[in-house]
Amino acid sequence: MIKMNKGLLALDENLASSIALRYASRLVENLPLQLQAGHVEVPDNKHHSAGKGWVRRTWERGLIEAGQQAIQRLLNTEKVPCPFIGYPKVFIGERDDALLEELTDGHYDLFIEGNLNTSDVMDFDSLISSPLYTKTPCPILVVKNLVSSNTIALLCGDGVDHKSVIPRTLSLLSGNGLDFDLIFYRYMESEATISENKDEAGSALQEAEALLQNENLKPLNTQVISGTPESVARLLKKYKMVASAFPLRKSPRLELLAQCPSPVLLMKSAKQGEKS
């Protein structure tokens, strides 16, 4: 029996959330995934200590209503059929803290949020170095663009423990109508990209193929791709998402994930706090 996963979709009233909402509405068609929408209302500093008792409760109620209205406006504007588990949850406080608390207490299997692709790699670096990303106890799906493909790239190489990452990725993405490509990324200082046979990755890609086979899956393509992060990222735009291990240090793979225009799924190891 297929396990139903539970995902938290963080929404704000902005472009990134519009894209994430549209993307998530398509994702639930493919995956056994139930979504809870969440929004954080960050109080103004001057109103933060708005009294006690009834005064504070009234102030909090006002903030929650404002948050609910913001999310409802987004849902009304987008008009996408995205079934949620319940009403959107509105939290008050600092964004990272509030979402992290919900992700921990709510036992979610996936955290989804929109984040626009930018020209500065440091933006992505800052994102994944944030307390929210480093401490989130589940995989994180960063939605950068709407992609209509049904093929997912499983990115290996450059320090990825594929034996750990691939089984957990597959358990999350075991849906209908999804195909997988196995890609071993290798940095090369050249504007042109080179695609090579899987044997060039040693035993890594053969082992990865065996892991897919364990789940009765066969990759559409298995290949080694060499190039700069920028040039290889352009090749990755054909994928519905690019799944890889959560990058722990600055590396070509981190830069590749930063430059990748498609959504990226960041899988954490058990050591990094992700539940098994």
């Binding site: 902005n14 472009l15 990134a16 987008e78």
Partner: peptide
């Protein structure tokens, strides 16, 4: 700029063009 991009995205998405979005400094 983001608000306008959201409108443009919706305009083209309704035409089934699905544009890519990128922010550049």
């Amino acid at each position: 700029v983001e608000n306008k991009m959201a409108e443009i995205l919706k305009y083209y998405a309704d035409l089934e063009l699905n544009p890519w979005i990128k922010l550049v400094r």
